[in-house]
Amino acid sequence: MGRSDQYPSVLQTVPGPGDFRGPRMVPGILPLEVRRVSLDMGSRRLLDDLNFTVKSGSFTIILGPNGAGKSLTLRLCHGLLRPTVGEVLWRGIAAREVPKHQTMVFQRPMMLRRSVTANIEYGLRLQGMGRRQRRERIAEVLKLAGLEALAGRAARSLSIGEQQRVAIARAWALRPQVLFLDEPAANLDPSATRAIEGVLRAVHNSGTKIVMSTHDLPQAKRLADEILFLHRGRLLEQSSADTFFDNPVTTEAQAFVEGELLW
């Protein structure tokens, strides 16, 4: 499927250098190349011959119905899973277990049994960041995620929407170059969803590359610059959001865009 070669994935210019701190300090890890990747579980083929490249700049959404393999694809990219066939390359180099400078937010936020602040601080500690710098970073992401009022609360006592914002703040505090999100707003009410999308836009504007999965068509329309359309473990389309929503190529994508029930 050599689509990615023909298609320029950078649709939006990267924000000015003033918005950057972390990522610019280290060499970029993008592009991410997924080459001829398949994933088997027992005798079942869950992902079949995926080929795509993710470049910096755009807000990328992996779109598809439930069971299409979106979560598995994200986990493969993130490094939690190893492909049965094929390889995942970061700037041409094969990935080790969970490479640095990229983080992931899961569909169900996993909160450590401690305060919101301590949850965010945990990841920073793992990176060996000093106490003062941690304090500053925490204050910064709490503000960005609108969590300042909840900072001292036990994370597990928050609503799922608030927990998901903590999870995003925790991931973003690490200043990743790439942030993967697996349906971060699934099962949330509209106001919680709006809050999350607001945070995601801020993250995106700060220069962090977002790769996010969703099955929610309107959400994809609101956020995406670029769409990867997955269906039954196969990548059917990779194109700019405008192209995808206006002129989907495959019949499956056409049906999905028109709101038909796909599975």
Binding site: R75, H78, T103, M104, F106, M110, L112, G123, R170, L174
Partner: peptide, 11 residues
């Protein structure tokens, strides 16, 4: 419960 998240954070 914790495995994915902790591995993801690089613990």
């Amino acid at each position: 419960e914790y495995e994915d998240q902790l591995r993801s954070l690089g613990a």
